[in-house]
Nucleic acid binder design. Structure first.
Lengths: 184, 184
DNA sequence: ATCTGCATGTAACACGTTACATGATTTT
DNA sequence: AAAATCATGTAACGTGTTACATGCAGAT
């Protein structure tokens, strides 16, 4: 139910279209949540049907028409309840296909195994670079939606989490390559 | 397709029942992949229908009857292809509900926000403890299935990855709590 | 001239979870 | 006496991906 509550959460900062929501997810929140337009529009439909959001049609001349979504009071309640009914252990259990491959990496010859880890390290590097972009979009988002409170402290903390993870991942990659090189 | 290839991969070490596969996932591979029995049995059905695995029925007296699955040649080919057709960027994009909550944590009063991070840190601590168990089950698995090669180097690397991640997460949690405490 | 951005959606499929169902044996 | 282990499965549901469809405006 995280996407649902993510949408509701973003709408607490102001009216947004499906397209804008998608953009925000795939920039500011990109490190921990990607979305597809198809999913966003379906979810917005569901939210509207449940009365958690409502929309205002806006006819545009030189652009396609929009639906500006805003959160309802019922939506705000639902969003608050999300924090009350959360439980930590469920949230942390991950699925990581990369590690599934590492588990079976003996299938590859040594040099290819090392190369595989090297690629991973490169990917982490580019992940770190993307976090820099996220930092910028966060600043833009705050001023664009005139967010007065210090929510951005928390937005930055998610980015910081990414930095910690990517840096640790790269250290792990170095460790892993060393181990593989030393094996018979 | 990671579960499918995970099952095929485990079966390269020897014959296993659905139940044993489930046990192995939820112990040795638990850090990065949890499964439910329902999913395992469905996937085994599919794999059998595709001719990637086959099974041998074993009638037991004081226990329910079993199906001992083994990988076919076709299954081995499919498993090898998994490494060839993989691409890194797809594998690394994560969904993290915990970070979704962090993003919106301004919704909670300061003390509750700090408590939330504290709970996370505790969860990481217990994750680290579980990794110790995983280390043991890996050793048992190797001797039980008489694995002669040094695959276990890679198994251990997945555990090490977990250690790096949990430790970095806990450092992040400390950093986050400090930031929140200092905010107005 | 081609690509990117804006803006909306539908349909089919793949993957994963929840809940249900059974039943003997062994451990606490 | 209660709970965990062994061992199999079905059905319904929820979530996410892939592929398809449209079409103008502005930038390269």
């Amino acid at each position: 139910m995280a996407l649902k509550h993510g949408i509701l959460g973003l709408l607490t900062y102001g009216e947004m279209t499906g397209y804008e929501l998608m953009k925000t997810f795939n920039s500011s929140l990109a490190y921990f949540w990607h979305v597809r337009t198809s999913q966003i529009y379906l979810e917005l439909d569901n939210l509207a049907k449940s009365g958690l959001v409502e929309f205002r049609k806006e006819i545009q001349e030189s652009r396609p028409n929009k639906k500006n979504f805003k959160i309802t009071n019922k939506g705000r309640e639902e969003f608050k309840d999300w924090f009350k009914n959360s439980n930590m252990d469920k949230m942390l259990n991950i699925k990581n296909e990369f590690l599934m491959m590492i588990f079976f990496l003996n299938e590859l010859p040594k040099n290819e195994a090392i190369n595989f880890i090297k690629q991973y390290k490169e990917e982490c590097k580019s992940g770190l670079a993307d976090l820099e972009k996220a930092k910028n979009t966060i600043v833009e988002f705050k001023s664009f939606y005139h967010v007065e409170n210090d929510s951005d402290i928390y937005w930055s903390l998610t980015v910081k989490h990414g930095e910690f993870m990517y840096e640790a991942s790269m250290k792990w990659a170095d460790y892993a390559m060393k181990i593989i090189k030393n094996k018979t």
